[in-house]
């Protein structure tokens, strides 16, 4: 690694491995997250995403490898690293004994932040996540979306350089999701580095500059969403419903379709969908969807369609 990389890398993982007994949940993964990037950590359930995040936060010791955040090795410098990091955990851990504003104030105190500066910051953050009028509400009076927004506000209380978000939008309605996406883009604009895990490929595609796809603890693909789509799947997809048994004749000769069948749906991945879509115009009884390939196609293509957990 050269000097400039060292200066701008926020997270640097080299051969990071985690074993629980005989089970290897993270296998020699290496990656670099440069300053100011939104970096996505993607993978099916049980792929090792959350374990990796825990190691980055110093909440889980490494079995092997070297992991540094802000140039400080973990887990030895966990306290110092966490002082400059904001965390949105997968599961809600807001303090139910406090109101919304109190949650933020008490959390700030864990960072050694106190006084009128904190009150100003709380006002700003509540505005940022549109919870200003809820400042005195109790946590159990909040909807799932509000809790998430509060958790995001809480993660920003120390004005962190790195924000780690573990599935920040799971279980939220589209309005809240879009709002959170907009806020995450704001954070990136303001120069913060984001590390995001998600099951929603659309989310990763919209937000992430670079993604790492891991499965069974190992890295299986990396790159920008656009690059991954270009490298791993054909550019166009035609989804056909109810065409089982007729697909041969529909595809005919001269098409380069790679097909995958899931239940009653056939996915045709192709470089040129025109021959197929033209033929489909003549079969109004078949419903089909023609769309550009996306990150989800990449994900399914390289991690397979088998159910996990």
């Amino acid at each position: 690694m050269n000097q400039t990389q060292a200066a701008t890398a926020i997270i640097e993982a080299i051969g990071v491995t985690k074993r629980f007994g005989a089970q290897e949940v993270v296998r020699r993964i290496s990656f670099t997250v440069p300053r100011g990037q939104c970096f996505g950590l993607l993978g099916p359930n049980g792929a090792g995403k959350t374990t990796t995040i825990k190691m980055i936060l110093g909440q889980s010791p490494l079995t092997a490898g070297v992991l540094t955040v802000f140039g400080q090795p973990l887990p030895d410098h966990a306290s110092a690293v966490r002082a400059r990091t904001g965390v949105v955990p997968q599961e809600d851990d807001l303090d139910p004994d406090f109101t919304i504003a109190e949650n933020l104030r008490v959390y700030a105190s864990y960072f050694g932040l106190e006084g009128s500066d904190v009150d100003t910051r709380i006002t700003e953050l509540l505005e940022f996540v549109s919870l200003t009028d809820r400042a005195d509400a109790r946590v159990d009076q909040l909807s799932g979306g509000m809790k998430r927004r509060l958790t995001i506000a809480r993660a920003l209380i120390n004005d962190p350089d790195l924000v780690v978000l573990d599935e920040p939008t799971t279980g939220l309605d589209p309005q809240v999701r879009h709002m959170i996406w907009a806020r995450l883009r704001d954070l990136k604009q303001s120069g913060k580095t984001l590390l995001l895990t998600t099951h929603y490929m659309e989310e990763a595609e919209r937000l992430c500059d670079d993604v790492l796809i891991i499965d069974h603890g190992a890295i299986i693909a990396r790159g920008s969403p656009k690059t991954l789509i270009r490298e791993h799947v054909e550019p166009e997809v035609v989804e056909l419903r109810g065409a089982n048994g007729r697909i041969e004749s529909l595809l005919g000769d001269g098409t380069d379709c790679r097909t995958e069948s899931v239940g009653d749906t056939i996915y045709c991945y192709t470089h040129d969908s025109r021959p197929l879509t033209e033929r489909l115009q003549g079969t109004p009884e078949l419903s089909f969807l023609h769309r550009p390939a996306n990150l989800e196609d990449v994900f399914l293509n390289i991690t397979g369609r088998d159910l996990r957990e």
Binding site: A78, S79, A83, P89, E91, D93, L94, Y107, Y110, F111
Partner: peptide, 14 residues
């Protein structure tokens, strides 16, 4: 159940 320590362990507290 409350995961209060979990949230504290995301801060400089050990």
């Amino acid at each position: 159940p409350q995961r209060t320590y979990g949230s504290m362990l995301a801060t400089p507290l050990d």
